[in-house]
């Protein structure tokens, strides 16, 4: 199973790389000029995102370093236990929507401590892979076009995250028979 997944992942990008410019050439597109035009746009777009990423990273960094995150985890524990999310996994569930690198570090630590094929290891991998970093995506995407009022995006994004976590626990229990 791993080998074909690895192979597919390894082959996808090189095939795009070869196919797109070649196809463009056949269609008589000025491929080099097109590439430069798109790439220049990419540069501007990326530079414009820096302030938004700094804003969100700093807020979350302060919240985490102060110990407030641990307090929040303690408060939420009684609510999440019945959902099949054990205490060890709780910090991951809280950090997942806030910080991609933070939740990745937590997941790696859980894999190290409990082993990748344990209930917690499988649950942590599933949770990490099945949703994206909600606050990061929200601030980056909305920020890049200057949206101030996000309407119902935050509650919907967070509810979807929680649904994903509960579904992760259910799916790991059913599929692996815990």
């Amino acid at each position: 199973m791993t080998s074909w997944v690895d192979y597919l992942a390894a082959v996808t990008i090189p095939s795009f790389l070869a196919f797109i410019p070649l196809y463009g050439l056949c269609k008589r597109v000025d491929v080099f000029a097109s590439f430069i035009e798109g790439a220049t746009e990419g540069l501007t777009l990326a530079a414009r995102t820096i302030p938004y990423v700094v804003a969100i990273f700093v807020a979350i960094g302060i919240f985490r370093a102060s110990g407030a995150l641990d307090i929040l985890a303690g408060l939420l524990r009684p609510a999440l236990d019945p959902l099949g999310l054990p205490g060890e996994i709780l910090p991951l569930a809280i950090v997942r929507p806030l910080s991609g690198s933070g939740s990745f570090a937590l997941m790696a630590e859980l894999l190290e401590r409990f082993g990748p094929d344990s209930y917690i290891g499988r649950l942590a991998s599933t949770m990490q892979a099945s949703t994206d970093t909600t606050f990061y995506v929200l601030s980056l995407y909305f920020g890049s076009v200057g949206i101030l009022s996000t309407r119902h995006a935050v509650p919907v994004g967070l509810t979807a995250d929680i649904a994903g976590f509960v579904a992760s626990a259910l799916a790991v229990k059913l599929f692996f028979g815990y």
């Binding site: 791993t2 990748p116 094929d117 290891g121 599933t126 099945s130 579904a167 599929f175």
Partner: peptide
């Protein structure tokens, strides 16, 4: 990290992603 079957989580990830 030495998983016996590293790709086995694909099914559970698909289910969880679908749900969310």
């Amino acid at each position: 990290y030495g998983s016996a079957n590293p790709a086995e989580i694909m099914v559970t990830v698909l289910a969880a992603t679908f749900a969310s």
